[in-house]
C-alpha cells in the first residue's frame, strides 16, 4: 500500500484556473493533473499537453478494416467458391465498395475507442476515482503532488493568490 499526498487547489472559474496554471508552472511547480467538469479550451496549451495521436490509430485501424474487407470479399467470391451472379465478374470490385466502406468505419471507430479506453485507464470499476467530488459538477481542481521539499505554505499562498477558492490536502491510497 503506497499512498501519495496531493495538494488540491479548487477554482470556480475556468479563466482564473487557466491563469493560475500558467502562474503555478511559471513558479516552477509541477502540476500533477487538472480536473474539470467539461473540456476547457486552451488548457492543453497552458498545461503542455501534446496533441493526441489517436487519429493516427484510427487511420491505421481503418486501413486494416479496408484490407480485411477487400481480402474477405475477393477471396470468398473470387477464389474459394466462385459463382456467376448476374453475369458479373467473380471479383466485382464496385459491388464490394459498400461492405469495404462499412468495415473501414467499424474498425477505425472501434480501434480508436478501445485504444482510448486502454491508454486512459477507462474501465468499469466500483470505486469513485475523483479527488474532489465537485470536480464533476461545477469546480475545477488543480492537483499538485506533495513531494519532499515542497513548502506547503508557499504552495497554498501561490494557489490562493491566483484565485483558488480553497486549498485542500488529499491522500490517495493506491
Amino acid at each position: 500500500m503506497t499512498s501519495k499526498k496531493y495538494i488540491l487547489g479548487v477554482f470556480d472559474d475556468e479563466d482564473v484556473l487557466l491563469n493560475a496554471i500558467e502562474k503555478t508552472r511559471a513558479a516552477g511547480t509541477k502540476i500533477y493533473d487538472v480536473f474539470s467538469p467539461y473540456p476547457i479550451h486552451g488548457i492543453d496549451d497552458v498545461l503542455g499537453i501534446q496533441r493526441s495521436r489517436l487519429p493516427i490509430v484510427a487511420f491505421f485501424c481503418g486501413l486494416c478494416g479496408t484490407s480485411f474487407a477487400l481480402w474477405m470479399q475477393i477471396w470468398m467470391l473470387g477464389f474459394d467458391w466462385p459463382m456467376i451472379i448476374g453475369g458479373k465478374p467473380h471479383v466485382a470490385l464496385p459491388a464490394f465498395i459498400p461492405v469495404t466502406f462499412e468495415l473501414t468505419v467499424l474498425c477505425a471507430a472501434f480501434g480508436m475507442v478501445i485504444t482510448f479506453f486502454v491508454i486512459s485507464g477507462l474501465r468499469p470499476t466500483l470505486k469513485v476515482p475523483v479527488m474532489d467530488l465537485r470536480s464533476t459538477d461545477d469546480k475545477y481542481v488543480m492537483a499538485i503532488e506533495l513531494k519532499e521539499g515542497i513548502d506547503i505554505q508557499k504552495l497554498n499562498d501561490l494557489l490562493r493568490s491566483n484565485g483558488a477558492i480553497e486549498v485542500n490536502e488529499k491522500e490517495v491510497v493506491k
Binding site: D33, I49, L122
Partner: peptide
C-alpha cells in the same frame, strides 16, 4: 468507467 475529468482525458 473510472472517469475523473482529467485534462489529459478531456483532450483525448
Amino acid at each position: 468507467m473510472n472517469w475523473t475529468g482529467s485534462a489529459k482525458h478531456w483532450s483525448r
